[in-house]
Amino acid sequence: MSTPLTLTHGRGADGTPLLTAVGEIDMSNTRELADALDRTSGPLVLDLTGVEYLDSAGLSVLFPHAERLELIASPILMPVLTISGLADLATVRD
């Protein structure tokens, strides 16, 4: 049984593809996230506002797509994104 995670594909107000994640991301469910990311191409807005937990396994899925990602995250995730250096590669906004 993997950690509960809901991934919803959609479009943002400007039509940019949007992936909304709700739940927690750890080693047990990064594959789902990776698959979802792989299914998209081009700039992608990843909304992590509903994610309460993100560890290095999740980060390692995000890094290959960093340059095309615009991350929306709650303050809870900010230390992890900053420390890992992902914030330097991807666009991060609150």
């Binding site: 290095s56 396994a57 390692s60 890094f63 230390p79 420390i83």
Partner: peptide
């Protein structure tokens, strides 16, 4: 093994 190394770095940082 980038993501494991990253985990360790996270632990030390946090």
């Amino acid at each position: 093994d980038t993501h494991r190394g990253r985990g360790m770095r996270l632990m030390r940082a946090l």
